[in-house]
Structure formats: C-alpha cells, structure tokens
Design a protein around this nucleic acid. Sequence first.
DNA 1: AGGCTAGGTCTGATTGACAGACTCAGCAAC
DNA 2: GTTGCTGAGTCTGTCAATCAGACCTAGCCT
Lengths: 157, 157
Amino acid sequence: MRPAALDWSVENCTIGRAMEILGERWTVVVLREVFSGVRRFDDMRVRTGVPRQVLTNRLSMLVERGVLRREPYREPGSRPRHEYRLTEMGLDLWPVLVALLGWGDRHLADPEGAPLAVTHRDCGAEVRVALRCAEGHDVTAPRDVVPRPGPGARRRA
Amino acid sequence: MRPAALDWSVENCTIGRAMEILGERWTVVVLREVFSGVRRFDDMRVRTGVPRQVLTNRLSMLVERGVLRREPYREPGSRPRHEYRLTEMGLDLWPVLVALLGWGDRHLADPEGAPLAVTHRDCGAEVRVALRCAEGHDVTAPRDVVPRPGPGARRRA
DNA sequence: AGGCTAGGTCTGATTGACAGACTCAGCAAC
DNA sequence: GTTGCTGAGTCTGTCAATCAGACCTAGCCT
C-alpha cells in the first residue's frame, strides 16, 4: 500500500523547519539549560561540556533565529555582562522539552529513576505532556490520529 | 540569583540522552517520514533529500537504539526487501513530534498556513499537545511548573 | 601595575555531511 | 542465459563542522 504522504511535498514542512533550528547536536541541550535557569555562557559550558566555539555558535544562532535574546546585566562589583533568556518563541518550546523529558525518562533513565521531575506548582503532582484535540478529547494512541493536508499543503512536483 | 540547577549533575539527564539519539541533523526528519507511513529507503531519500550514506547511517543507528526495526516484506513480482517500522519506543516519540509540529506551525509556517494537520479520528478536530499534571490539572504557563530533583538525581562533583 | 574573570577567538586535528559514481541481488523480458 | 531494471545500499573525494587546547580582551579590584 502506497502511503498517502508520498503525494505531498515536504518543502514547507514545519517539522523540517523546526529541526533546521533545533536539529544540531547541542541546541536542545543548551535550551534545557536556559529552561533550568542557567543563563550564562560559562555555567552552560561547564555543565554541558560543549566546546566553547560550538556554544558560541549555538547561542548566536538561537539569538538570530529569535529563540533567545541577549540581556545585559550587572553584578555588583563586576563589569556589565549579558545573559541569555528565552523569548516568547523560546518559551513556546516548553512542551517540546517536556515531551523529550518524558520519552527519555521512560526509555533511557538509569534504574534508580529520572534525575529531574517537573511538578505542578499548585498541587505538586508530576507534569507530563498529553495529546488532546480541539474538542477536548484525549488522544492516547497514534492510531487515533489521522494526518491530513493543511491549508499550506503543496502537491509534489 | 544563582540557579538551583547548578548544584545538580547533568550526566544522567534524560533530555541529554534523548538528544544523543535524536540530536543529529536528520534523525527527526527521518522519523517524521516513518510516522507519515513512509517506510522505504528510497521513498525517504527522495522526499527528504538526505544523502544516501547519511540515511543509511541514521536508519541503522535508529534500529540499533531500538527506535525502529527492520521488517522483511515482499511485493509480488519483486525480490524480498525490508522496510523500517516504529518499535514501541519509537511510537512513544509521537508526542515529541506533535510538539515540534505545533511549535513549527506557530512560528515557522508560511503565511498560507501549515502544510500538515493532525486530526482526531473520532471527531476530526485538530490535535495538539497539552501539559497536564498527574492530578489532572492543565498547566499552561512554564511558570506553573517547578523542576525538582527526581529519584535519580546526583549532586555535582 | 598586576591579577582575576566572563566570555569569548584562533589554530590545527578529527569527524561528519554531502554528491556522484559504483555494486549487488534477484526478478523479468528477451 | 544474458541483458536490463530496481531497491538498497557501498566507495571515494571534497568541503564543512566539531572538538580540545591555547590565546585574547575588557573591565573591575588590589
């Protein structure tokens, strides 16, 4: 059976575009740091082990693409520096990170369990991603979802 | 203010581990194809434009890591071949893909809209990721979530 | 003046991406 | 039974990215 997807172009696929930004080896790890509140070059470098040059590149790329912004700050007794903070576009990546965390926790954690839990501020219970349709129904299995061409779909050349 | 994250090691971070698998340039794009029902080497190659060698590498890496499996099949009038299918571990990546799709649709789509919509089989409404805690509360803002060390957390050396 | 520190550059070796040609197994038509 | 086709690769050479390690620089402090 020939998959229907073959008739459609992937040139403007938004997953592909997202991966042009996020698909390089360290980008998501850097974002994990920023979401954890680590905003400074050297803290990131020490924690992640990313080579300086690569970290420089990733950070400027993320700034250029609008995911992070450089914010000046000044610690008393030090010269002005800048730190990296999430833009709105960057904050919107939160579900992606939580989804990755959930997958990693399920399949890649050490026997003693996950090193990090994200919990709801109000009740303390663990937070996970869920799939839900616009009508409010929960979607559990991938089989309950049908892909279909959206408004921007293009037939293949 | 010093971020609390600095006290904890990232060596067993499951996001980091997930990105060891998913963090190479084409891996997620390949998975998008498989989730779209494209399972054969050449179809993937033509659609994605990934160089053959890279596609070979990514596919075998994904098989080795347990995300995909190779399945033999035979079209009438052809010799036996094999195709790539998602394992259970691979199927569990579905929320990650949907989260990426949602982010890409919001921030990277062309003006005419997203090329792909995922809809609920039962009601046809669009499917999105949502964050929810174990008590069933919806979580909307990243600020409503507090990270805390999990059972596998390790202090930093 | 000299030292410290955060946030970088510079350099050279190794690895990875990529394009294009070549291979190989099995089926099919001649 | 040779020729050709097709899917799924390998081989080769080029060019870009990653990495480790040394070096640099602006402002503060002594």
